[in-house]
Design a protein around this nucleic acid. Structure first.
Length: 785
DNA sequence: GGTTGCGACGTTTTT
DNA sequence: CGTCGCAACC
């Protein structure tokens, strides 16, 4: 019986099924499990799946829930509405499109499309481009939509700056309407407007959804709050799950008061607290609890665990960001060797993306596999946006923004002047650009050469439209890349050894993959459906737990995940907590930084490392930051201060020496190799050691990959057993490793260099920039030049 | 129509 | 220190 798999509070939350319910679920307290079982239980009790609505913030969460509900109930199609706020709203808007004055299918504008429209607005409204940056407006408009504010409110403002925002907002909104497009904010706001202005529609949905569940309720903004509130007014079976201590998106419009005031919004609210943490050890939990206790704007809650004390939270002071990176690297290697943690068990979390760089450098140099999440998103990449613009144009040719984007990409001789003549004609006649293209003959300002070029473009789009009717989504995407000349263009560049072009081709291939997966899963869906599905998709959705690599990500991106070992780096005043506070709500923002720290700390299951650097390069300038206040908020008895003086501090440029000083081995140490048995270290050269093995003679080994462990003298007697040294696979390469002295080679990290000497699988190269290095061929990516 | 160089800028970003 | 956008060049 599935109820037996729950603790007392979780069970209570599953069984309580009449009226408003607030589940305050601390980090690692089995939140998702509770929601899923609650849904399953409702259905087992006879509630129809069609009467249940579950809203989440990420596709990942939605998919996970869908899958788990399906497996508990053992059905193929769950029937209930489970999705992100945005996808649920999209679904409603598409069904009710007659009420909202949009044609179906409307398109969805991503952040980059948004910016394109804003740029045009700034130009057309003759605003000073030095004073007004597009980002200011996108931020303001998104925020306005989160708060359900229309542009009228801004236009009526006494503040001239707000009036300018109003003007741009108005222009932008009209432009979107003209293009039959909505941005992310519109999806929510327009749904609220739809329900507010159509009583019949509202009542239909209120009737339909007898039970509504909201995940991560602390992250809802005002618009989302209104939406939920309207939908639930009839049945009041609203269950919200969240943790006020994990609200970290305030700057994006999330309104913490939604969860804090929930009990005042409804009558007879039942509150259940899930406070048993199944993730972290006592020390980690105690440290995290102590930090969050310094916040005043929160509900009382105290997490506990029965996992046992565990090790203390490790604290390390580095000299600078490079030695911080090397501490992380070295510690990870040690954890792997001594405690058997795998790469995928480990995550490194930081406040800003820029901090990943020194860590990447260190990992790259030492071939420690890692994966970075965030940064430029896959769907934001230029080539992906370009291809998708073509695809969108096939579905909706009147999308001016996207047409403008690709009409000359790749170059086909339709330059700025030509386009201007075309767009002028369109504007004068009040038609879309594509309609103007259909009337090219009538545009008198164009010479026949350019008319023909435009006709060619039109023919291209028509060919693609035709192709789309008879082929699968992935074939269409591929055809776009082919017919548009995009592929040829990149292939040409690739021939010239352009690495970037190669990546772009790979990205396009990946997009075709995504499309074919979609086509396989949704056999009845077409291009239209594919486009709206990926418009709401993000990179986080592709996070793979199985990956054999260390995870690098921002603290924000880590929410909802867990790792056996967590490093939080850069715990310095000014960096974390970040130093950019508004004067008005300084305290609010500090509390949000603290919650972010809490989120980071509670990701850790077994080991938590906190590091800070005494000095750090920020924006090219040397900064000397104080250790973060969050460190001093941790009780000393939970901390294990690592008091290694950083010998390497003075020579940070010389990675080599840092590693040497951090190398766990010294000459004379006895080691045990998984295959080669016991040996003694004869020499140490960077991270390569020469070991004399009892049974197989001397060998060079790369410390970070050789399956080695240090052994004490007393162990030796026990350990000498029959080790039959198997020749390593690499040994065969020794005969001819493909390189000879004098070869010029290129290394991903060090650049160009010349081969100086060869010693088995080891190769010494004199790099033009990085100097002389000894590297293991098996683990080094080298190219002959 | 495409390249180059200079200056401005610089959190976090579930959709 | 990097990146990116734009203006001035070829």
């Amino acid at each position: 019986m599935y109820l037996d798999e729950l603790n007392k509070e979780q069970r209570e939350a599953v069984l309580y099924n009449q009226g408003p319910l607030l589940i305050l679920a601390g980090a690692g307290s089995g939140k998702t499990r509770t929601i899923i079982y609650r849904v399953a239980h409702l259905i087992k009790q006879g509630v129809s799946p069609y009467e249940i609505l579950v809203m989440t913030f990420t596709n990942k969460a939605a998919n996970e829930m869908k899958d788990r509900v399906k497996s508990i109930l053992d059905v193929k199609y769950p029937g209930m509405w489970i999705g992100t706020f945005h996808s649920i709203c999209l679904r409603i808007l598409q069904q009710e499109s007659i009420h909202i004055g949009y044609r179906t299918p409307f398109t969805i504008y991503s952040t980059s499309n948004q910016e394109t429209v804003i740029r045009r607005a700034i130009k057309d409204l003759n605003l000073d481009q030095n004073k007004f940056k597009p980002k200011m407006f996108t931020t303001a408009i998104n925020q306005a939509k989160n708060n359900l504010d229309s542009y009228d409110k801004y236009l009526d403002s006494k503040n001239p700056y707000d009036r300018t925002i109003g003007e741009v907002y108005q222009y932008y909104q009209k432009e979107l309407k003209k293009n039959n497009a909505m941005d992310f904010g519109d999806l929510i706001m327009n749904t609220v407007i739809l329900l507010r202005e159509n009583k019949k529609v509202l009542e239909r949905y209120q009737d339909k959804f007898k039970h509504i569940l909201i995940d991560e309720y602390q992250d809802t903004n005002k618009a989302q709050y209104r939406l939920v509130n309207m939908l639930t007014q009839r049945n009041k079976n609203i269950c919200v799950v969240g943790d006020d201590d994990q609200s970290i998106y305030g700057w994006r419009g999330a309104d913490l008061s939604n969860i804090l005031d929930f009990e005042n919004d409804f009558r007879d609210v039942k509150i259940i607290r899930l406070e048993q943490n199944y993730r972290s050890t006592e020390n980690i939990l105690k440290a995290a609890n102590s930090v969050i206790h310094n916040n005043s704007y929160r509900k009382s809650k105290e997490l506990w665990t029965d996992k046992g004390e565990g090790t203390r939270v490790h604290l390390y002071e580095a000299n600078d960001e490079e030695s911080e990176a090397y501490f992380v690297l070295k510690t990870i290697k040690e954890l792997n060797i001594t405690k058997g943690f795998e790469w995928k068990d480990i995550a490194i979390l930081y406040r800003t993306h820029a901090q990943s760089r020194p860590i990447e450098d260190a990992f790259l140099y030492h071939n420690l596999p890692y994966k970075i999440y965030g940064g430029t998103r896959f769907y934001d990449r230029k080539e992906i946006q370009d291809i998708l613009s073509y695809a969108n144009l096939i579905v909706n040719p009147h999308d001016n923004t996207r047409l403008q984007r690709i009409i000359n990409v790749p170059r086909r001789g339709i330059g700025e002047r030509t386009f201007e003549r075309l767009s002028n004609y369109a504007n004068e006649n009040g038609i879309s650009y594509y309609e103007a293209i259909e009337e090219t003959g009538k545009i008198e300002t164009l010479s026949s050469t350019y008319k023909n070029k435009i006709r060619d473009f039109r023919a291209l789009i028509e060919d693609l439209e035709e192709f789309e009717r008879n082929n699968s989504v992935d074939e269409v995407i591929n055809q776009i890349a082919e017919l548009s000349g995009y592929k040829d263009d990149l292939s040409e560049l690739k021939k010239k050894n352009n690495v970037e072009a190669e990546t772009r081709l790979e990205n396009i291939a990946e997009l075709v993959n995504v499309a074919s997966t979609f086509a396989a899963r949704n056999p009845d869906a077409g291009l239209k459906e594919f486009l709206s599905s990926i418009a709401l998709e993000t990179d986080v959705d592709s996070y793979e737990e199985e990956d054999e690599s260390v995870t690098l990500m921002t603290l924000h991106a880590a929410k909802g995940l867990e790792f056996r070992v967590v490093f939080i780096v850069g715990l310095e005043e000014g960096l974390f907590p970040s130093l950019k506070f508004d004067n008005n709500n300084e305290e609010d923002e500090m509390e949000e930084e603290r919650r972010l720290c809490y989120v980071g700390m509670t990701r850790a299951e077994d080991e938590l490392y906190l590091t800070y650097a005494k000095s750090r390069r920020q924006y090219g300038e040397m900064k000397y930051n104080m250790p973060s206040r969050f460190i001093s908020e941790i009780p000393e008895e939970c901390l294990d201060q690592i008091n290694i003086m950083d010998k390497a501090g003075a020579v940070t440029k010389e990675y080599v020496k840092v590693v040497e000083s951090n190398n766990p081995y010294t000459v004379g140490d006895k080691v045990e190799h998984k295959k080669l048995g016991i040996g003694v270290i004869l020499e140490i050269n960077e991270d390569i050691i020469k070991v004399d093995f009892l049974q197989s003679g001397t060998r060079m080994l790369a410390t970070e990959f050789a399956p080695l462990r240090l052994i004490k003298d007393t162990e030796i007697v026990d350990s000498i057993r029959n080790v039959t040294p198997e020749p390593l696979a690499r040994e065969k390469e020794q005969e001819d490793n493909g390189y000879s002295i004098g070869d010029v080679v290129e290394h991903d990290h060090f650049g160009i260099g010349e081969v100086k000497s060869l010693d088995g699988e080891f190769i010494t190269i004199d790099f033009n920039k990085a100097g002389s290095k000894m590297l293991s061929i098996a683990f080094t990516k080298l190219r002959k030049v």
